[in-house]
Write a protein that binds this DNA or RNA. Structure first.
Length: 428
RNA sequence: GUGGCCGUAGCUCAUCAGGUAGAGCACCGGAUUGUGGCUCCGGAGGUGGCGGGUUCGAGACCCGUCGGCCACCCCA
């Protein structure tokens, strides 16, 4: 019988890595607060119908990537493959959309795909949704916020912003007709996938990686030429705001996105340092989504970013803070009486120094092995309780790190003075 | 779903015309009756992913299967 393993593509995040995650999450939390966004926490499971209607029936996500199952009541449920649909659902359900809302959330998402670098079946996103403002100043804010994050994390030079407008539903539909007509005339020159998409999702042919197809697209109608006036004006205004704020971007008229709800502004932050899965953050405007999910027409703009990819990028760029030890003080003892005193004293120390990380040695062992643990723990100080100390009413305090050796060394401290001695030591 | 590469100790990897497995790190103990880091000595730890086949004999060869990585695809 073989051991039970984690589900394919659903990875444990081990203690080695959690500090990196906490660092990234902390930066994001601070960033969101700095722009006036509030956190919202959403269920991981929703009715399947939400994603069918929200993400779009013809998308890859809905077609073949969802974890869908029947619950005991035979309702069809789905592990959320993305966050926007659930967030919109919640905002509608709780009547939050009478006024503009700035919201963010974080958590696991699920897509049944073949795992590879930067892609797993359970992955984590931070998402942001700004509801109720249709003008491009809101698009700009959202993008500026992401740009600030890259600066905060020290990866600003390693990501590039790609920007496009895919216009209104009407202009997109006009363009689609023209594009399909053009591509049909050159059907034989298309790669196999693109031939298939010609019917199902022709806009996605635009970002085909096939060189022949790309060459063909050079002569194809351009989405830009089909933009309605409002979309064009708003896009220009967005670009002007980004220019004024000093955010660099490249216009990518072939950038479309895989979720049906997008319109007008779409953007991606990409990096060339993560292999094939180079999109760290993607988003755009979705003015029709709220209505499509049963709310009043309320515009929205947002993004999602992948935390795994972000952590990978920070590792790649070596911009993560250095790992710190687990302990500040390691407490060893020998004999029952000494241990009783040590445990009680540690509790008092935790009262006095709530931020101090005090690790108690449990499980016995020789002084030597206990000291070895003390060293391995990375603690700065060891507190040593043995028979001699019990007899003398003292505790031995020993510096474990070179920096403290000369100043602190090993000293015998009367129990009553332990707290003040520690306070003095830790003061500098 | 497709393809390429890979599966030997907790980790990183050796070994090999096919003759029944080794190192470093980590772990435990000792050298040092109550004191870590360095050094030395010792110990524990592997049904060589799993199943089948070829062979006198397979971790090594073949087939299957599962898993991992990377890529296609898609996106975060």
């Amino acid at each position: 019988m073989s051991n039970i393993r984690a589900i394919r593509g659903m990875n444990d995040i081990l203690p080695d890595e959690t500090p990196s995650w906490q660092y990234v999450e902390g930066a994001i939390r601070q960033l969101m607060a700095g722009y006036g966004y509030s956190e919202i926490r959403l269920p991981i499971v929703e009715q399947t119908e939400l994603f069918r209607r929200g993400v779009g029936e013809a998308t890859d996500i809905v077609e073949k990537e969802m974890y869908t199952f029947a619950d005991r009541n035979d309702d069809s449920l789905t592990l959320r493959p993305e966050g926007t649909a659930g967030c919109v659902r919640a905002a509608i359900q709780h009547g939050m959309l009478n006024t503009p809302q700035r919201l963010w959330y974080a958590g696991p998402m699920f897509r049944y795909e073949r795992p590879q670098k930067g892609r797993q079946r359970q992955f984590h996103q931070v998402g942001l949704e700004a509801f109720g403002v249709a003008s491009p100043d809101m698009d700009a804010e959202v993008i500026l916020l992401t740009a600030r994050l890259w600066r905060l994390l020290g990866v600003a030079d390693d990501v590039q912003l790609q920007l496009n407008s895919i216009g209104s539903a009407q202009s997109r539909s006009d363009f689609r007709v023209a594009l399909v007509s053009y591509l049909r005339d050159h059907f034989d020159a298309l790669d196999e996938d693109s031939q298939r998409r010609l019917d199902s999702n022709p806009l996605r042919i635009l970002d085909s990686k096939n060189p022949d197809t790309q060459a063909l697209l050079d002569e194809a109608p351009s989405l830009t030429d089909y933009l309605d006036d409002q979309s064009r004006d708003d896009f220009n205004r967005l670009c002007a705001l980004l220019d004024a704020a000093g955010v660099e971007y490249s216009l990518n008229p072939r950038l479309v996105r895989g979720l049906d709800y997008y319109n007008k502004t779409v953007f991606e932050w990409v990096t060339d340092r993560l292999g094939a899965q180079g999109t760290v953050c993607g988003g755009g405007r979705y003015d029709g989504l709220v209505e499509q999910l049963g709310g009043k027409p309320v515009p929205g703009v947002g993004f999602a970013m992948g935390i795994e990819r972000l952590v990978l990028l920070l590792q790649e760029c070596e911009t993560l803070p250095q790992a710190t030890a687990d302990a500040d003080v390691y407490v060893v003892s020998f004999g029952n009486e000494a241990q009783s005193e040590a445990v009680a004293a540690s509790e008092r120390l935790r009262d006095a120094f709530p931020a101090l990380r005090i690790v108690q040695h449990n499980g016995g062992g020789s002084f030597k092995s206990q000291m070895k643990k003390a060293d391995r723990s990375g603690a700065r100080l060891a507190l040593i309780w043995g028979e001699d100390e019990v007899a003398a009413g003292t505790v031995s305090l020993k510096a474990l790190r070179e920096d403290d050796k000369e100043r602190v060394g090993q000293q015998s401290v009367p129990r009553a003075e332990l707290e003040q001695t520690l306070r003095a030591l830790l003061a500098d």
